[in-house]
Nucleic acid binder design. Structure first.
Length: 553
RNA sequence: UGACCUAUGGUGUAAUGGUAACACUCCGGUUUUUGGUACCGUCAUUCUAGGUUCGAGUCCUAGUGGGUCAACCA
């Protein structure tokens, strides 16, 4: 594989070489249970779980549930499902809320050391004290409150004696620091709110900065990997660990992955759902893990994609075609082949008389072990409307009057004519077949430049096929416009009702099963399928060099 | 009038002071009973200017561009 190391791997290998933490590697994935996981989370998961896996370590799944206002158990299950689906296993399932008592004691320790104080200032006053990035802050009038008073007040905060917002606990750091986060950050706030796990046990809750690093430390996380925007938090992360004299977890930041035509903002994703642009969080067009799963992206393709995108510290936007290339690559190896006609036009084989012929179709030419399936051929079949042209250019290798074409897995046929309606729309095509040109035992000596797929009319079933285009018309949705909704592609879904599949194939379908529709692309069976009507989602198309050729004219 | 992060083909990632490499895209070609797959080929004066060095993408200095930081969110 690739023997060069990314910068985090270099750090880890150096730590191992130095015998740090006895060479142990323990990472964590810390989602907040307030939404669904998306492609950006997939990247974070692949980095934290992947690195631990690589260095014989482990990863804890820790829900960062310190804000009861927005969080809910409902999300816990979907997050666990998504991580498992990606193929990762966590060592322990943990919750920051498990540490509320410990965290409270940490805060008491800080107060006793004169490193935290209760502040009675209003939110507006605190904001004013903070200053701006270019101007230093000013000390709060409560900064020098005596330790005993702080201890008493903090305990009374816990006991519920004060209303929401009336007081906070602040770390006593440095209001003149150039790093805004070091300007006496709030570490506890009062919220008389029901928590999804601790119920009404608490009415004060720790802030991110006073929960995350300490949770890492409690679990003895060796490498706490997060995205670049947390880099300013690191001095504070280290400050708490130093002052509390607890296990020295280390935070390392890497750039989050952006993908063309995708958004990962929770607020924007929610807007798409609420406005009915998509049918839900798991709509196959959504960049959520559940959406990609429904669309038919194999988990391994997503993992390989994240891996190929790499790990570094600069802003990046990965091309969507890398993701699609990974999906095709995976599906090419695993998807069962089948012939499906999306836009059917009947073809009559005029010299094939009554009855039918049994033919054998390989399930996957990339995997000889996959075997074969029997299909029927008769004098009445459907072919793809776009596989026939009345007046075709010489570089068109498909069916055209007087031309030869191979019917995949069957025979070479010669087009002898066609019917059309008053609008010039072709309603039926006629051809003769060459009995000695049967696939696998062709002795005809004929050469057909093109091969097209077909479905036998007598046993054809109708299916619904949903074709997806990008959800946005711009690779960076929202860029250069006031509202990202201006870049929504209002035509991202095409529903095809009368596609033709053969009954033998229909019998093999089950929700989630992936197929390659020959010459079209990869499709997955959708959960909306009903008895008698299979619904497919188009996962991704095959590369189409004919479309490219046509586009040149 | 600040601090921090960052700068290598179209995109992303390597090269750890010694011939700028790999993947995807693009373009061209070979093979092909999927216009798929597979395979081959083309595509870069490493942001700028100085400096250190026999030698700099890499180290130093200054500039420039991009990003982040002023939630009782995470």
């Amino acid at each position: 594989m690739n023997d060069s190391l990314n910068f985090i791997e270099q750090i880890i290998e150096e730590d191992i070489a130095n015998g740090k933490h006895e060479g142990r590697v323990l990472t964590r994935f810390p989602p907040e249970p307030n939404g669904y996981l998306h492609i950006g989370h997939a990247k974070a998961i692949c980095v934290s779980f992947g690195l631990a896996e690589k260095y014989n370590g482990a990863t804890n799944l820790r829900f960062d549930d310190t804000n009861p206002t927005t969080e809910d158990t409902e999300y816990v299950e979907s997050i666990k499902k998504d991580i498992s689906w990606l193929g990762f296993t966590w060592k322990e399932e943990l919750y920051a809320s498990d540490y509320f008592e410990k965290l409270y004691q940490f805060a008491v320790t800080l107060i006793k050391k004169g490193l935290a104080y209760v502040d009675d200032s209003t939110p507006e006053e605190i904001a004013a004290q903070k200053g701006t990035p270019t101007e230093p802050g000013k000390d709060s009038p409560y900064k020098s409150r005596p330790i005993d008073e702080n201890l008493d007040l903090f305990e009374r905060m816990r006991n519920g004696e004060f209303p929401d917002g009336s007081r906070v606990l602040r770390a006593n750091v440095d209001m003149s620091s150039p790093n805004m986060l070091m300007r006496d950050p709030i570490i506890y706030r009062i919220k008389h709110e029901h928590h999804h796990r601790t119920g009404d046990q608490w009415c004060i809750y720790p802030m991110y900065d006073f929960a995350h690093g300490q949770s890492d430390s409690i679990e003895e996380i060796t490498h706490s990997l997060c995205s670049l925007e947390f880099i300013h938090h690191r001095p504070l992360y280290d400050w708490f660990i130093e002052k509390l004299e607890i296990f020295p977890s280390k935070q390392t930041e890497f750039a989050r992955m952006n993908v063309e035509y995708m958004i990962t903002s929770k607020r924007k994703l929610l807007k798409l759902v609420q406005d009915g642009i998509v049918t839900g969080w798991d709509d196959p067009r959504m960049p959520t893990i559940s959406g990609m799963r429904r669309r038919g992206y194999p988990p391994m393709a997503i993992r390989i994609f994240c891996d190929k995108a790499g790990v570094a510290k600069r802003e990046n936007t990965i091309e969507i075609n890398l993701l699609e290339a990974c999906v095709r690559d995976e599906l090419n190896k695993t998807a069962e082949r089948t012939m499906v006609v999306l836009d059917p036009v009947p073809l009559t084989i005029t010299n094939f008389l009554d009855g039918f012929e049994k033919l054998s179709m390989e399930l996957n030419p990339e995997d000889p072990a996959s075997g074969h399936r029997e299909i029927l051929f008769s004098n009445e079949i459907f072919i793809e409307r776009e596989d026939f042209m009345k007046d075709a250019p010489s570089n068109y290798f498909r069916m055209k009057p007087g031309g030869l074409v191979r019917l995949k897995h069957a025979f070479i046929v010669e087009c002898t004519g066609f019917d059309e309606d008053e609008n010039g729309v072709v309603t039926r095509i006629y051809a003769t077949y060459f009995p000695d040109s049967r696939s696998g035992s062709d002795t005809s000596g004929l050469k057909a430049k093109g091969t097209i797929h077909w479905v036998n009319a007598a046993d054809a079933k109708e299916a619904e096929v949903r074709i997806y285009d990008r959800l946005f018309t711009h690779p960076s949705p929202g860029e250069g416009v006031e509202d990202f909704m201006e870049h929504v592609n209002r035509d991202s879904l095409t529903e095809i009702k009368g596609a033709k599949i053969d009954s033998g194939m229909e019998a093999t379908t089950s929700v989630g099963k992936q197929y390659q529709f020959l010459r079209h692309g990869y499709f997955a069976v959708d959960q909306d399928s009903k008895p008698g009507l299979v619904v497919f989602n188009k996962t991704v198309g095959l590369k189409d060099s004919w479309a490219k050729e046509k586009g040149k004219q």
